[in-house]
Design a protein around this nucleic acid. Sequence first.
RNA 1: GCGGGCUUAGCUCAGUUGGUUAGAGCGUCUGGUUGUGGUUCAGAAGGUCGUGGGUUCGAUCCCCAUAGCUCGCCCCA
Length: 437
Amino acid sequence: MAKEQGPMSGFRDLLAEQMLPRDDVLDTIKEVYGTYGFVPLKTPALERLATLTGKYGDEGEGLMYRFKDNGGRDVAMRYDHTVPLARVVAQYGQELPKPYKRFALGEVWRGESPQAGRYREFAQFDADIVGSSSYLADSEVIAMMSDAMSAIGVGAVIRVNDRRLLDGLAQECGITDKKGFLSLIGSIDKVDKIGQEAVVAEIEEAHGISAAKIVDDFLSIDGTTEQKLLKVSELVKNENSDEGIGSLSSILGTLAFSGYSEKSVVFDQTIARGLSYYTGTIYETTLTDLPSIGSVCSGGRYDKLIEQLGGPDTPAVGTSIGVDRLMEAMRQLGVQKDIKTRTQVYVTKVDGTVDRERFAIVQGLRKAGIAAELVYEDAKLGKQIKAIDKLGVEHILIVGTDEVGKNIVILKNLETGEQTEVPNSELANKVASLNNK
RNA sequence: GCGGGCUUAGCUCAGUUGGUUAGAGCGUCUGGUUGUGGUUCAGAAGGUCGUGGGUUCGAUCCCCAUAGCUCGCCCCA
């Protein structure tokens, strides 16, 4: 059958069984972010083309969804949350609190060719601290990522590095031009994918044997965070790397002091991040039980970006969660909740003459904060129960003329099969207590 | 932008070395008598075999084209 009536390639419908667990995860993350004082920011899905052009490089530009709107204006779909943030900072700079800690959750659109775990419309959940270059800001963002992963029940380790360390490494390798540097970083970034040997070979080809030797030694460094930092500082000695190591020591030391062990936050000199705009701390998140899915949450410090994007010269550090990849990971890990509805009680229909009473019962439950529904159409009770059970609703009420006459309802637990008569007056409390268990 | 794979029932897929009524599992529906499900039993509905052309007495199967989907590379989340 033609599958041409579905959504376009790279776009998806998310039905209740995807959206409900997703909402739960996002709510949990929002709560965590809230405990750090982050406030929400919503920017439009559509921006003026001029706001977005020239910000993502030629490649990004080509991937942007752009068109003329009905009034003939050039517009483009939001491509990420960072450029809109820069616009907001430029526009409201004076009014914003300092530091400005905001999170942004929403869809972004990129006209890439879709692949496994990559879509043309996908949600990003960004959190950034704008206006401070303090290492405490970096520390908070990393701690917050770690907390968020714990809160949603996913084991994760955040691997932290510093861009300046890599700058220093490049310097040691005799690489001074930006292009060479990006190629070096690009190679190092692939170490998880292709292995150290292949990376070293690639670097030897591009930058010569002595550079390859240094990188090989660099990548081989092992041990605890503290040991590794020491060894790196011995191997790469220059101003750049010293800054990076100093900053990493402060951040990781501070985090360790607050109980973030090496199981949750580590120094990893192989983290490179392909993006060119990072200036300091960089980090990625590896899921303990599903490393192959890649980083579900990553970011770093980008002190020059907001200025480049047309805002004021403002330091910033932030993180971005790939919501869809995270949900996919949770599905694969089997930790995604299996829910199709939030309804707690379903009132069945056994007798059409008591619809008013059934409706009133449902309204009473709803007023008490309980999610309740009632069956509309006549059907065999067995069929009703089957359908309700399939939805995953645990309790049903049976209300017919007998029950209405006695001012009671029959409450049945579909999991245990247990069934009791409950006086109408006690119903809401009874149901509430069931769901609190 | 480059390369591979796929497209048969609502879903996941068989299948025909080209030949009369295209199959399975799951799902859906009906029934195993009146207000009690998840197991089970009996039965039913449901397919222009992606679209267009060609070869052939005959095509879902072969050829060409086209579209859609999908997976890699690049880049990224």
